[in-house]
C-alpha cells in the first residue's frame, strides 16, 4: 500500500514537472538568467507547488500520524552549517550550467535523449561520492 501511494505521489510529481515546463532546460536557465530574456515561469511553478504543501503541513499538525501509519517528519533542524551552504552553492552551479535538477532529470528520462543519460550518470556518481566528501570536510573543519 505504501508503495502504491509512493507511485501515485511520484506520478503527480513527474506529471507536474512535465506540464509545468520544468523539464525544458531553456525555461529553467531563462528564469536564472536575469540579464537575458527573463522567463518568470519557474516562480509560478514554485508558487503553485508551495500552496498545497502549506495546506498539507497545516494538516499534519491536526493529525496524530500519516494515513498509513508511522510518524510525520520531525520539525526542521534549526542549525544551518557549512554543508548546507557549500552544497547549495555547488548544486546551484550545476543547476545553472545544465538547467536540470534531480526531479526533472528523472521525469524527462523517457524523452531527454542521450545527453540526459550522461547528466544522470554523473549525478549518481556525485551522489555516491558525497558521503565521503562530507566526512572529509567535517574533519578538516573540525581540525581548525
Amino acid at each position: 500500500m505504501r508503495n502504491l501511494f509512493a507511485l501515485l505521489a511520484g506520478g503527480l510529481f513527474g506529471a507536474g514537472l512535465m506540464i509545468s515546463g520544468m523539464t525544458d532546460t531553456a525555461k529553467v536557465q531563462g528564469w536564472l538568467d536575469v540579464f537575458g530574456d527573463w522567463d518568470p515561469t519557474l516562480a509560478f511553478v514554485m508558487g503553485g507547488a508551495i500552496l498545497p504543501m502549506t495546506l498539507a503541513w497545516t494538516l499534519t499538525r491536526r493529525r496524530a500520524a500519516p494515513a498509513l501509519g508511522g510518524a510525520f517528519p520531525p520539525p526542521p533542524e534549526p542549525k544551518l552549517g557549512h554543508n548546507l551552504v557549500l552544497g547549495s552553492v555547488l548544486f546551484g552551479m550545476g543547476w545553472g550550467l545544465a538547467g536540470l535538477c534531480p526531479g526533472p532529470a528523472i521525469a524527462a528520462l523517457s524523452y531527454g535523449g542521450p545527453g540526459l543519460y550522461i547528466f544522470v550518470a554523473a549525478m549518481l556518481l556525485g551522489m555516491r561520492a558525497a558521503p565521503r566528501l562530507r566526512s572529509r570536510l567535517d574533519r578538516a573543519l573540525q581540525a581548525e
Binding site: 557549500l86 552544497g87 547549495s88 552553492v89 555547488l90 548544486f91 546551484g92 552551479m93 550545476g94 543547476w95 550550467l97 545544465a98 536540470l100 535538477c101 534531480p102 532529470a105 550522461i118 547528466f119 544522470v120 550518470a121 554523473a122 549525478m123 549518481l124 556518481l125 556525485g126 551522489m127 555516491r128 561520492a129 558525497a130 566528501l133
Partner: peptide, 8 residues
C-alpha cells in the same frame, strides 16, 4: 553539471 548537482 551532473557531478555538481549530485554532490551539492
Amino acid at each position: 553539471a551532473g557531478l555538481l548537482v549530485g554532490v551539492g
